[in-house]
Design a protein around this nucleic acid. Structure first.
Lengths: 194, 194, 194, 194
DNA sequence: GATGAATGAGTATTCATTCAT
DNA sequence: TATGAATGAATACTCATTCAT
């Protein structure tokens, strides 16, 4: 039960960190506010994380992990390559919507908060690309997709949905998810040529 | 000539700012280093820009302006909608390659460096989307493209090339620009369906 | 037996404190390290000593007490004033050698660790001076020493041996105790005049 | 004049530092108080000294330098070995009286404030011992002193006067300098033997 | 205009001490 | 009685900004 309590407090802090970092970015976020949001004393944060920087990195890692884990698991449970791609649109849309503010930080900080984190983010991206790549490759084998470059296609796909969904980050519009997904899939599948 | 000198020094500072901000990010960049790089005294920076923040914003704006201006001008001078889109890939690739480090900051800093800058960045994006949108719309009218949603297509296109080219930001690979452009255009035009 | 255990633990802590304070000085020494060295929990330290400061003071007092007690006892058991002085050189040399690191702290901390400790240290010094003074006075009465100021002589004597032996604190030389004692006694007894 | 002003401010800070460090010791002294005492802003201290630690060391070094320089200069201008020794008593007495509080810190801080400073202090001590040693050696050659060990004699002498004068550090007594010097010299020269 | 010396607001981090278990 | 998780007071240092020269 002790282990549980400890783990719980860790998560508690991580959650508060996500909130505060999202709202203010790394530099303007105050450790004290994170502590306050977590309902603990300032010093306690340092019992669980050695520094503000590492707390930040842990928080990001945890979020990204959730994202890729979900993508992997969900696509496996679906038949049909096109349907798998559609599912990734769903997941991405949901993740961005849920982590709106957090997502804004993700590409940040050249040479700053940590090389280690950057590597982690690239890894996440690579992992997503690989997942998509596999789907595309399967599609080609199955004759559903034509002979395209799977890697570049995956990159494009990720960028395309990122761009469309990313609009949410800046414009506060609400979106018709179903419509968006259909149009997106149509473009991906059929291109724009007449 | 004095006016010229003044303008020159402004640009001098802006250039130094681009270098230093790119290297260290907004928070770790020191005004003093910018001044030193510009070959002037620390106080002089404040004769031309009211604050570090505004200097940063000006620097970004200037860079983005160059980008969209170029995109607009170059696409006008070309016939053929597909060719126009291909030109945008060129421009984007070149811009990202040239402003590598800078580009890394562009999506940064939620609630931090300034709402005004964010609006400016969105404006830039919107302007690029509009340029692409117009090309797509023309293409549809001319019967070169099928009846797709021009706005979403533009978003996708921008995202797709951004994603593919953006790999450059993290992986230091060199890229075969011609090959990249061709594949990208093929996917955009024809989709992945068999 | 409980009482014994309690006393034992007290001494255990005191010993750990001596080790840690000697190594790091008062300010850099951590209560937690002392506890760890004593093989007990951090909180337990506070069951035996009300504060870090008082623990430090107790530790010093205990050490000084050993020093003066020994000096008093040993000199009483010896006949001959010169021999008594020689014995004090022995004791001092031994004490300094044994408490090397500790000795470095003893003159420290103006207005810092505590007025009470300072008084205690002065008391120790005074007590040593009195012991020496008594020896000198006896020597004068017995006609072994000439009519010198006993107090000042005692101060000089203590300072002289402290200075010579104190070299050990900084230079890690080993010393020929016997030779040192003989020369020291010769100078004390006969001075430097031809 | 600029150079002068800068040097002046440096000295100003050094003086304030001496005051504050003397009163509170290294750890309890606050940089902000030093700045206030020097009549400048906190940040300005850091324009002249890179850290609290280095400021402290500079301050000590400066004081010790004055001490040994004075000892060297003054003894050279005097004839007679005994008189030279007497002069050293004067200088030491004066220095200790003037730097009372400072002197209390000098033997402090094992492994703490800085190995570099410790080396400096040993150097100072060595330099003083050498000065005294030379005097003793000369005296022996001139037949004024008998054949004693000059180094140990020098150590003893320094320790003896240190001890007697050092009493001032703890007891606030005023002292009859002339009487003290005479008795001290008598003991040094003639010893205590009848 | 140009400068850079002076400034002080702002903050991560440490660690003695407490107290619930 | 023993413990160690939790606490928050306390402080050196940075750097954007100012302003006298």
């Amino acid at each position: 039960m002790e282990e549980l309590t400890k783990q719980d407090k860790r998560i508690q802090i991580l959650r508060a960190a996500a909130r505060v970092f999202s709202r203010h970015g790394f530099y303007k976020a105050k450790v004290e506010e994170i502590a306050k949001q977590a309902g603990i004393g300032k010093g306690t944060v340092y019992e669980y994380f050695p520094s503000k920087k590492e707390l930040f990195q842990e928080m990001i890692k945890k979020s990204l992990e959730q994202y890729t884990d979900l993508a992997e698991k969900e696509t496996k449970s679906i038949e049909g390559c096109a349907e798998k791609l559609a599912k990734i649109i769903d997941i991405h849309t949901h993740f961005v919507t849920a982590h709106k503010d957090l997502a804004k930080i993700l590409l940040n900080d050249p040479g700053g908060v940590g090389e280690s984190l950057k590597r982690w983010m690239m890894t996440t991206r690579v992992r997503m690309i690989e997942i998509i790549e596999d789907i595309v490759s399967s599609g080609i084998k199955q004759g559903v997709f034509r002979e395209v470059d799977p890697t570049m296609t995956a990159q494009m796909f990720l960028g395309a949905i990122g761009s469309v969904v990313g609009k949410l980050l800046f414009f506060e519009e609400t979106i018709n998810h179903k419509d968006l997904k259909e149009k997106l899939m149509d473009l991906i599948l059929n291109g724009i040529s007449a």
